[in-house]
Structures are given as C-alpha cells and as structure tokens.
Simulated scan of single mutants.
Amino acid sequence: MTSSATVPIRLRLAQLAAHLVVALIALVVIGGATRVMEAGLACPDWPLCYGSLLPGRQMNLKVFLEWFHRLDAFVVGVALLVQLGAAWFWRKELPRWFLPLSFLLVLLVVLQGGLGALTVLQLLPSSVVTAHLVLALTLVIVMSGLTQRLLHTGSKDAAAPRWWPFLGGISLAAVSGQCLLGGRMASSWAAQRCLQEGQSCQWLHWHRSAATPAAICVLLFVATALIAGGWARQQWPLLITATLLVSTQIGLGVLTLRLGLSQPAVTVGHQLVACLLVAVLAALTWRRPSAPDSPLTIARDSSTLEPCHG
C-alpha cells in the first residue's frame, strides 16, 4: 500500500502524464494535418523555421501548422525532462519502474525529434514519415498506460481479470496496426493515386480489409467486459467511449473515400479519432483496480482527474 506521504507527488505526476497524453495526441493530429495540407516542407530548415524561432513575414496556414507541430514537440520534450527529474528526485517514494520508464520516454522523444528532422532534411521520404508515426503512437500508448499505473495502488488481491490485458492488448495491437497501415498509405499518397490513377491500390485495400478485424477485436473486448460484470463492467465509461470511437472511425473512413479525400477536415478527423481510440485502449489495457482503502483512491475520487486521464 502506498503511504499517505507519497500520494501528492504520485497524483501530480499522474496529472502531468494525463496532460502529456493530450499533448501527444495533439502532436500526432497536427502532424497529420501538416501532411494533409502538404505543409511538411513549409519550413524548409530545421530546427528553426526560415532561420528564426518565430517566422514573421513567411507565416501562413501551412507554415503555422509545421511551426506549431515543432513547438508542441518541444513542449512535450521539456515536460518529459521535468518528469524524469521528478522521477529521479523522488525515486525512493515512487515505484521502481517509474524512473527507467521516464528515461526511456525521454530517449524516445529525442529519437522522434531526429526522425522529424530527417523528414524535412530528406524531403519527406515515406519510410521516415511512417517511422515518425510509429514512434508517435508508441509514445501515446506508453504515456496513456503510464498514467493508469500511476493511478493504480492496489495489492495483488486487487488485480484485473486475466483476460483483461489479453483482450485489451489484442485490441490495441489491431487498432495500432490499422493506424500504421493508414499512415503508410497516407505517407506514400497511395490512396490519392488509387482513386485518381488506379495505381498503388493494394495499400488502400489492405487498410480497408484490416478495419473489420480491428473493429471486431474492440467490440469483443467491450462485450466481454460488460457481460463479465464486477470491476470490468465498472469501466463502462471508457468501454462505451471505445465503442463510439470505433463507430465514428468507420463512418469517417467511408466518408473520406466517398469524398475522394477532398475535404482535409474529414481526413484529419479520421486521424484524430484513430489516435483517441489508441489512447483509450491503452488506458483500458493497463487499468487495474485500486485497493479500497488506498489514500490515492480516495483523493482521486474527489478530484477532476478521472474524466481526463484517458
């Protein structure tokens, strides 16, 4: 059981992690909007933009998207360094896994920054852009799971059902794989070439074919949890959210194709819902029951953290 002296710092770090989840989702979506608007090279240099921290005369929508994407990445990097510093300073009071995981997150964001630089310096190669997305989704998954583990203070007697991480992990892997197929398709402009020229249609076919198994995995996970009852059914807010996100994602995907990718807002919305679904599934997969007499549980129930951390 966690002592009452360690509750405040653990809660504050959970709040920081929750805000980082939001910032990472924004980073992925803004990156997607940058690609959709063909603004990936709006700032021709790196890390500055037209040789300055804040471009003035060159500022337009495309430049703003690329510049703001870099700014968000910088803020995330600083926040992760703060988290690492806190993990080191309070390492005796926090779980042993927190310090190495915080260090790993810093390494991942540094690598992410390097891939971001390569996308500009090498003029948007498809493989690098896809790797950039892979790492971004990895950061979202790890940070969302980290938030849950910071909130979990239960003992061995307060464990999730054995099927919970299994079905949750399968759902998360299926949706993440679907996102990567979509990212690869988008970074190579395969959908546009397929719709306009009838070329490179295999990526679009694979993306559409994988949508059904991914949706089935999520719905099976949700149905099992609701039928099982107990603690699993108590997670219904996030379970229902995952169901709604799957339905919305399918609808946006169909609409995107019917519009011939001509509406950037619909395409970006499709990417936003996908990233939200990944974050929610990661939160569910790593969620564990808290001990009934845990001070952290009492403090969390009286705060506004619960609605936002996923």
Results as ranks from 00 to 15, higher is better:
residue 214 A to S: 12
residue 196 Q to G: 05
residue 182 G to E: 08
residue 54 L to N: 06
residue 230 G to Y: 06
residue 95 P to A: 03
residue 113 G to K: 04
residue 276 L to Y: 03
residue 95 P to N: 05
residue 230 G to K: 04
residue 253 G to Y: 08
residue 125 P to T: 13
residue 210 A to V: 07
residue 125 P to Y: 09
residue 195 L to H: 11
residue 256 T to P: 10
residue 85 G to S: 07
residue 149 R to A: 02
residue 166 F to H: 11
residue 305 L to P: 01
residue 148 Q to A: 14
residue 100 P to T: 11
residue 44 P to V: 11
residue 113 G to A: 06
residue 79 A to I: 00
residue 185 M to W: 07
residue 252 L to F: 14
residue 197 E to P: 02
residue 146 L to F: 06
residue 228 A to N: 13
residue 188 S to T: 14
residue 229 G to T: 12
residue 150 L to C: 03
residue 168 G to K: 02
residue 13 L to A: 02
residue 2 T to H: 01
residue 309 H to M: 03
residue 106 V to Q: 05
residue 241 T to S: 15
residue 171 S to L: 08
residue 54 L to A: 13
residue 29 V to D: 07
residue 98 F to K: 00
residue 95 P to D: 02
residue 289 P to M: 11
residue 276 L to N: 05
residue 106 V to A: 13
residue 106 V to C: 15
residue 120 V to K: 00
residue 273 V to T: 15
residue 127 S to K: 09
residue 279 A to E: 00
residue 158 A to E: 15
residue 48 L to G: 08
residue 232 A to Y: 10
residue 1 M to A: 13
residue 263 Q to D: 15
residue 242 A to C: 13
residue 102 S to N: 08
residue 118 L to P: 09
residue 223 A to Y: 05
residue 54 L to Q: 08
residue 297 T to W: 00
residue 230 G to M: 04
residue 163 W to Y: 12
residue 10 R to C: 02
residue 158 A to L: 08
residue 38 E to N: 15
residue 76 V to T: 00
residue 297 T to I: 01
residue 233 R to D: 09
residue 188 S to D: 03
residue 254 V to E: 14
